[in-house]
Simulated scan of single mutants.
Amino acid sequence: MVELGWIGWIIIGGLAGWIGSKIMKTDAQQGIILNVVVGVVGGLIAGFVASRVFGMESGGWIYSFVVCLIGACILLFIVKAVTGRRSRV
């Protein structure tokens, strides 16, 4: 399998974070940097869990994107649950 470099993680994380923010309806609150951070952090967390549950360390671009997307959605869900709804004044 192809190993992703840090540029690959930024690209995949950015796309996954952006799509995850669209799914979780938080896109208006985030910029491109936060999308990348959410995608990469979500991917790291979900990748760790997936490697323990499924025993797969890596699976290429598509596997990495799906794992990052799922992780980003879960991370955004947790952040929304912890922070609650904040109204803009």
Rank of each mutant, 00 (worst) to 15 (best):
L75S: 05
V2C: 01
K22N: 10
T83A: 02
V53Q: 00
I78Y: 15
A72P: 04
I7R: 03
V79R: 11
S51N: 12
G8Q: 05
L15F: 08
F65G: 00
G8H: 04
S51F: 04
L4D: 01
L4P: 06
I78N: 02
G59P: 15
V67E: 04
I78F: 14
C68L: 01
G60L: 07
K22F: 13
I70T: 03
R52C: 05
I10A: 10
V49C: 10
L34N: 15
C68E: 06
V37C: 08
G14H: 10
W61R: 02
L34K: 04
G17K: 02
R88D: 09
W9H: 13
T83Y: 10
R86E: 07
I70R: 06
K80W: 00
V38P: 02
G31S: 13
L15P: 04
R85P: 00
K80C: 00
L44C: 13
G13T: 06
G31F: 14
G39S: 06
G60A: 07
L69W: 03
A28L: 06
I12M: 05
M1Q: 02
I78H: 08
A50I: 05
W6H: 01
S21F: 15
I11R: 04
S87E: 08
V38H: 11
V49K: 01
Q29R: 15
I11S: 04
V89W: 11
